[in-house]
Design a protein around this nucleic acid. Structure first.
Lengths: 146, 146
DNA sequence: ATAATTGCAAAAGCTTTGCACGGAA
DNA sequence: TTCCGTGCAAAGCTTTTGCAATTAT
């Protein structure tokens, strides 16, 4: 069974990543990292919490928020303010465009729009720019069909 | 005194605008419109409320929220989600870039960055785009000096 | 007159905080 | 053993809602 070994390795990678950031590798943090990894759904804190709850019955929403906070400060993830109702979290910290569907509320990546962002300088009209975000609002392909 | 006449005219313009939208021209709405007009501070609902409270002691926050909601739906203003803490309102409904200062929390217009937005089509990769917003985060000129 | 709008209070979310306990290093 | 991290409950905010009273038309 190679799968077991693979999982163990990924787990170790995540633990190392956390320790490299000066953080303790707790089961909760490892689970949140694992859930986020490769997740393109831009989940909210509540969604992460609900998804992990079955396997971590003692998990608390406060821990989820806390972990997401330090992961953002560490540059491992990015927080999106695209959804007017709640914060969304993106495991990919590199700048890229997002789309918010006003019908279903889902958030999508728009990787091909990215280039427009690259051209922005570190300084615009005296403002020091740390991060740029491009958000589009409208109707996603699935909702257009209905 | 020409000022009085001018104020009366502006007030009439706002009243007409409201009625054109099928809305009643109440003192509260006229005051909110007047406060927003030419206001480049991207105020929050609370800020609008506090600013108008002295002259409209009976004004309620619920009315402010309600008015802002219908003004947005009418296309008269735009709601910004750039501030992670609260919604900000912009009397200019046309798409333009914004800057959020992470130190003082103020929101600025970045009118010269606008062109980058113009190039975006109505449809991107199957997504129907109704609105695009470009937000930059960093430190504003005033805060850089300190 | 009458239908829309206001203001109040309460409710509904989302997110943060304080603190005692538990667990990683 | 030593702190860092967790979980719980409560609090803090922003925003929404229901409804009776008011007011624009």
């Amino acid at each position: 069974m190679e799968r077991k070994k693979e999982r163990r390795e990924k787990r170790n990678e995540r633990a190392s990543k956390l320790r490299r950031l000066g953080l303790r590798a707790t089961p909760q943090r490892l689970a949140i990292l694992a859930f986020l990894e490769g997740n393109r759904n831009h989940p909210s804190a509540e969604e992460i919490y609900q998804a992990l709850k079955p396997r971590f019955p003692s998990l608390s929403l406060a821990t989820v928020y806390g972990t997401l906070e330090i992961l953002e400060q560490s540059g491992e993830i990015q927080v999106l303010t695209i959804d007017p109702e709640r914060r969304r979290f993106d495991p990919d910290p590199t700048p890229h465009a997002h789309f918010y569907c006003q019908l279903c509320g889902r958030v999508f990546d728009l990787p091909r729009v990215q280039p427009a962002l690259e051209k922005l300088p570190e300084e615009i009209e005296g403002f020091w720019v740390e991060k740029v975000s491009l958000s589009a609002y409208g109707v996603c392909p699935a909702c257009r069909k209905r």
